[in-house]
Amino acid sequence: MVDFYADWCGPCQTMNPVLDEVIAELDGKIKLFKLNIDKNPQAAQQFGVRSIPHYILFKRGKILWRKGGYMTKRDLLQAMKGFVG
């Protein structure tokens, strides 16, 4: 999963511990990559990221799921469990 974020983004900072907890609970079944849109604007443009935080889950180069904005731990964990079986 790629977390599109910026250092100045308050909701992005709020999501960091939520993301860490969800990834830990999924026990390595999903890897988290953080992509700073200020340092990589071309990647944000390529994937149509218009607001942050924004998350895209990839499997073998294909987008399986995407969502923008703040999410509760419960909602994010529920969404991810649908992909890790």
Rank of each mutant, 00 (worst) to 15 (best):
M1T: 14
V2T: 03
D3S: 13
D3H: 11
F4D: 01
Y5I: 09
Y5L: 06
Y5D: 08
W8E: 03
W8R: 07
W8N: 09
C9A: 02
C9E: 12
C12R: 03
C12G: 09
T14L: 13
T14I: 15
M15W: 07
N16T: 14
N16W: 08
V18P: 09
L19D: 04
L19Y: 10
E21N: 15
V22P: 14
E25A: 07
L26K: 04
D27S: 04
I30V: 14
K31H: 03
F33P: 03
F33S: 02
K34A: 05
L35M: 10
L35G: 04
L35W: 04
I37N: 02
K39M: 05
K39Y: 00
N40L: 00
P41S: 01
Q42N: 01
A43T: 06
A43N: 00
Q45V: 10
Q45D: 08
Q45G: 06
Q46F: 08
Q46M: 09
F47E: 05
F47L: 06
F47M: 07
G48I: 13
G48N: 12
V49H: 03
V49Q: 01
V49G: 06
R50Q: 15
R50V: 15
R50S: 15
S51D: 13
S51I: 15
I52C: 12
I52H: 11
P53R: 07
Y55R: 10
Y55V: 14
F58K: 05
F58D: 09
F58W: 03
K59R: 13
K59E: 08
R60H: 12
G61S: 11
G61Y: 06
K62A: 06
K62W: 00
K62D: 11
W65E: 10
G68R: 12
T72F: 12
T72C: 14
T72E: 15
K73C: 12
K73P: 10
R74Y: 14
R74S: 15
D75F: 10
D75V: 03
D75Q: 06
D75H: 12
L77P: 03
G82E: 10
F83P: 06
F83M: 00
